[in-house]
């Protein structure tokens, strides 16, 4: 049986031989890995949300036409098919609050007068920051902290550890960027190459028909948007509503409200509304009921290019 003195000396030995080397080695490896991962993987993929957020904050290319929005933007806009110098900032799972953040960041760029294009979802103005991994690299940027609100955690201040649970998503974007196995990548646009089976697609249509789609207008977000528009009269805001599968409209409870909303925006001089939401595209152009597939996106971009040409030199 040990005595208390040997217990203390054992603890000192444990600190010296195990805990201290463990912490030192962990910090060292963590620091090196963090540097490598951030530089090469997170910022090495044009289509990742983290890269896009970093780009919208830091890049200042005055000729770049920015395309904003959710996954419907990411999967609908192929920048090289649409404009000479464009970038698709669409991010999966994000809603209007992230769009407002992006618009505000874009409008901060001095000497930039080119139009801004953004995709509009018929479910209206809602809140949703999407995947938190999009914001971790720039988590110390005050507007990001404000955007995340209560979702902000203290761990986001700790390098390397803040990425716990998110390494997969960064790697996924990075690999997609390199090998384009499941997506076609073009300047931030990531168009789905995969196809669902017919049974799977029919199941989604059935679900869509059974559920209700609803337009929702958040007054605070709308006021925010109109403020941005009014404060930046030198910029044109082009709102594009990409096509939906027809099943979406069968279950839409207040489509008239969405149409009224779009018509009200048209009254603003520097807002252009291009509504393609009800284009009668066949099933073969859709990945699911809200997103186009590669063939659909190519077809849609032909059409959109001509429309945008009126507003973009």
């Amino acid at each position: 049986m040990q005595n208390p003195i040997s217990s203390i000396s054992n603890f000192k030995k444990f600190l010296k031989k195990i805990l201290l080397p463990y912490f030192l080695l962990s910090v060292l490896i963590g620091f090196v890995f963090n540097l490598f991962f951030e530089k090469n993987i997170i910022l090495g993929s044009y289509s990742s949300g983290a890269y896009k957020i970093n780009r919208i904050i830091n890049s200042n290319n005055k000729n770049e036409i920015a395309f904003f929005g959710s996954s419907r933007a990411e999967r609908s806009f192929i920048p090289d098919s649409l404009v000479k110098d464009g970038f698709n900032y669409g991010m999966v799972g994000t809603a209007a609050d992230v769009l407002m953040f992006c618009l505000r960041e874009e409008c901060k760029k001095k000497n930039k007068t080119v139009p801004i294009v953004f995709a509009f979802d018929l479910n209206g103005l809602n809140y949703g920051v999407g995947d938190i991994s999009n914001f971790l690299y720039n988590s110390d940027y005050p507007p990001i902290r404000k955007l995340l609100g209560t979702d902000y955690k203290y761990i986001y201040n700790v390098p390397f550890l803040k990425y716990y649970g998110h390494f997969e998503i960064y790697t996924k974007y990075y690999l997609n960027n390199i090998i384009s196995l499941t997506k076609l990548n073009n300047k931030g646009g990531a168009i789905e190459k995969n196809e669902l089976t017919k049974a799977n697609f029919d199941e989604l249509v059935k679900l869509r028909l059974a559920g209700n789609t609803e337009f929702h207008n958040d007054p605070k977000l709308l006021a925010d948007f109109l403020n941005i528009v009014d404060e930046n009269k030198n910029r044109k805001f082009i709102l594009v509503a990409p096509p939906y599968h027809r099943s979406v409209f069968a279950g839409f409870t207040n489509l008239n409200k969405a149409e009224e909303f779009l018509n009200s925006l048209k009254l603003h001089k520097n807002i252009v509304v291009l509504d393609f939401s009800q284009l009668p595209y066949p099933d073969k152009y859709f990945f699911d009921t809200s997103h186009l597939n590669l063939a659909g996106a190519v077809e849609f971009n032909h059409l959109l290019r001509d429309s945008l040409a009126h507003y973009i030199n």
Partner: peptide, 17 residues
């Protein structure tokens, strides 16, 4: 120590949060 460091990194990098 090496074992603990390796496991820690595998958990952080590959683990589901």
């Amino acid at each position: 120590v090496l074992f603990l460091v390796t496991i820690t990194f595998l958990i952080i990098i590959l683990g589901r949060n």
